[in-house]
Structures are given as structure tokens and as C-alpha cells.
Design a binder for these strands. Sequence first.
DNA 1: CGGCAAACCTGCGAGC
DNA 2: TGCTCGCAGGTTTGCC
Length: 280
Amino acid sequence: MPELPEVEIVKRALEPVLLERPLRKLQFNRADLRFALPGDLPDKLAGRTITSISRRGKYILAFADNDHGFVLHLGMSGVIRIEHPEEQSDQKHDHVVWAFDEGPRIVFNDARRFGFLQAVHVEDWQDSAPFNAMGPEPLGNSFNGEYLAEALSGKKASIKSALLDQRVVAGVGNIYDCEALYMSGIDPRRSAGSLSAQECEKLAHAIKTVLALAIEKGGSSLKDYKHTDGNLGYFQHHFAVYDREGDPCPKSGCPCGTDNGVQRIVQHGRSTFFCPYVQN
DNA sequence: CGGCAAACCTGCGAGC
DNA sequence: TGCTCGCAGGTTTGCC
């Protein structure tokens, strides 16, 4: 589930349950996820209170009142469950548990284990990888057409893959990459450096729009998520092209409707979905 | 250095 | 029913 909007939604859901509650125990159910889990972190955080939560790209950061904290990445299949005492259940692939003296606990479940949790300190987290090379937040003011034109300048790789580079812009993944390129009418196969200033402006705007809309939709169905125990997929019904191979694209009267519809191609090992008429 | 394939790991749906 | 294959929202590594 995790691109920027989903991570933002998880971050917002964590705020009321993780903040300002003394953490009884940070429990690791195995020694490693994608990377080794920080074995000394539970001792640093036991009995402490988390005082801040933030998001950077697809990463969630949380710091305790002693300036120690953790950074969490959900990988491809990572899911956070917030479980009230009467609804706690241990499930396969529950790797990390945040336990409190009372009230809900927090569980990180990740079947594929592409996700990870690492220790960070408030003083220096920004100086270490990947944060020291990460591009701007797409919803922030510093991300705009002018920045994008500069960042893409001279790049020979396709615009599709350039947007997946977290050094160009933080938090865009395969879905919103496809959606933003559709929204801006840009062919995903074009080289990144070939985009005009006007196209960069359009694309930057489309990225902001699609991400903001996804956060809005995701937020509205977060209640369902909490009650249905892990059933996700809030925004999927709003995709214009992603995972819609063969369907007519949403543009009314688009010739793709009487042709082959939305096309799927593979670029650098990842699926790209696009409408060859809208995006040219 | 830029670009790209492969690797990491498990689960699920399609097809036989 | 059960097997194999291909595919999955991400990132890192190593090779040209």
C-alpha cells in the first residue's frame, strides 16, 4: 500500500495512538526485516514518550523525549494495525509491536519484508542516507515546474523512471507516477530531459494534484480500514490508468475507447500504464 | 557518473 | 484440486 499518500495516512493514524503515551515496550518478533533491526533501540525507547511524528517521502519518523527515535519504511507489503485491547490478534508476519500499559497497541506486519525499521537520532538523521540526498516534498512549495525542469535537465532516462528516483522528488511511486503522467498528458517513454518548461510545470502540478486527491480519499476511508482489519484499497477506484490495461481511459470520447484502451508496457522492470492518445 | 538488471521475500490469481 | 508461472505499491547493489 505504500506511496506518499498511504504513508501520510498511516502517519496521521499513528498520531493519536503513538504520541504522548509512555511506551511500555518496543517488541521485535524477529532479528531482521530488509535490514537488521536495531537491537539496542527497545532499551532506548522503553518507558519513553514519543513526542513527534513526521513523514519524509515514504518514510515515517518518530522521536521520543530523549531525542532517540525510529524511521519506518513500509516497503511493498508493510501494513500498520492499530488494535484495541479487546481486538488484539497475532498474525503471520507481525514483526514489530509497540505496546503500552493501556489502550491500543500498534503492530507492523510485512509479508515480503521489504520494509524496515531503523534507529535515528534527532540531531543527525537528515545527514544520513537516504535523507541527505532525497528530493523535495512534492506537496511543498519548493517543488514546482522550475525545480523539476532543473532536476530533469540532461537526464536520458525515461520520465517514468526519473519520477521514481527519490532524489528527484520524494514519495512518488509506480501508481502515482503513472497517474500524474496521464493527468499531464505526457508520454511515459519520453526522455526526462526532453520535457519543455511548460510540460514540467504541468507535470509538477499534476503530481501535487493526484497526491493530494489520494490523501483526501484515503483519509475518508481510514475509518473503514480500522474496522475491517486490514482491508485496504481506498483509492484504487479512482485510478485513471493504473492497473486498467485494456479499459477505455476516462477522457470522454477518447479514441482509445474504440481501440485497445489503456496500454501496459514494462519500463525498467516496472509496469507502466498509459493512454497513447492522451499521452503523446 | 548514469542507466539498468537483478536481488531481496512472500502471497495471490491466472492458466493449465 | 493442485501445480507452475507471472506479477505485485520499493530500494539497494553491482555491473557496464
